[in-house]
Simulated assay, not measured.
Amino acid sequence: MNADSKTIDADLVGSASPPRDNGEIVFGAPWERRVFGLTVAACRSGACDWDDFRRRLIARIAEDETRPYWQNWAAALEEVLEHTAVVEQRELDHRHDEFMRRSAGFDHHS
């Protein structure tokens, strides 16, 4: 069952919420903001299950508490997308490789 927007919003301000500074979610790079937005949009649209994503995120964090938060978030999203057959692993790998080949600042302007 998909969580509604109120559930997602509550989780985003709860104890397991993303890192914050002065009340605002902290993103260290543009890709972090994008993966956050993609996740919330996919879950709100019903393409992904928020509770499933949240469980996978918690499991990823528990695996290695030193791994950066947004890497855990991205990995959890990839797992959910693959599990729900929204995107196959080979497509995720292909897109990841494409993004990694881009030069720094490729599509980001200051």
Score class of each variant (00 low, 15 high):
residue 2 N to A: 14
residue 91 E to N: 11
residue 12 L to R: 15
residue 62 A to K: 13
residue 81 L to N: 14
residue 13 V to M: 09
residue 1 M to I: 10
residue 3 A to T: 07
residue 21 D to H: 11
residue 20 R to D: 02
residue 44 R to Q: 07
residue 91 E to S: 11
residue 62 A to Y: 01
residue 30 P to Q: 01
residue 82 E to T: 14
residue 90 R to E: 13
residue 1 M to L: 11
residue 59 A to K: 06
residue 108 H to Y: 13
residue 36 F to V: 13
residue 94 H to Q: 14
residue 73 W to E: 05
residue 8 I to N: 05
residue 93 D to C: 08
residue 80 V to K: 03
residue 50 W to Q: 01
residue 55 R to D: 14
residue 61 I to Q: 06
residue 56 R to V: 06
residue 10 A to F: 04
residue 56 R to I: 05
residue 16 A to R: 11
residue 102 R to T: 09
residue 13 V to W: 07
residue 29 A to G: 02
residue 104 A to S: 12
residue 80 V to Y: 04
residue 107 D to H: 11
residue 17 S to M: 10
residue 28 G to H: 15
residue 15 S to D: 12
residue 12 L to H: 08
residue 26 V to K: 09
residue 43 C to E: 04
residue 80 V to P: 02
residue 84 T to C: 14
residue 23 G to M: 05
residue 15 S to E: 10
residue 89 Q to P: 14
residue 26 V to N: 06
residue 102 R to V: 05
residue 106 F to K: 13
residue 37 G to K: 02
residue 55 R to I: 05
residue 110 S to N: 10
residue 7 T to L: 02
residue 80 V to F: 03
residue 17 S to K: 13
residue 90 R to S: 12
residue 66 T to G: 12
residue 51 D to E: 11
residue 77 L to F: 12
residue 74 A to E: 10
residue 25 I to F: 06
residue 64 D to H: 05
residue 104 A to K: 12
residue 65 E to F: 04
residue 74 A to P: 06
residue 52 D to G: 04
residue 25 I to E: 00
residue 8 I to F: 04
residue 35 V to D: 01
residue 53 F to M: 10
residue 9 D to Y: 08
residue 30 P to A: 09
residue 55 R to L: 10
residue 60 R to E: 08
residue 37 G to L: 05
residue 87 V to D: 06
residue 27 F to W: 07
residue 46 G to T: 07
residue 60 R to H: 03
residue 24 E to M: 15
residue 101 R to I: 10
residue 70 W to G: 06
residue 38 L to E: 13
residue 9 D to C: 12
residue 90 R to D: 14
residue 107 D to C: 10
residue 65 E to I: 11
residue 27 F to T: 06
residue 31 W to I: 15
residue 71 Q to W: 03
residue 77 L to I: 07
residue 44 R to M: 01
residue 24 E to A: 15
residue 32 E to Q: 15
residue 26 V to H: 00
residue 47 A to K: 12
residue 6 K to C: 05
residue 74 A to M: 09
residue 24 E to H: 15
residue 36 F to T: 10
residue 38 L to T: 08
residue 103 S to L: 09
residue 64 D to E: 03
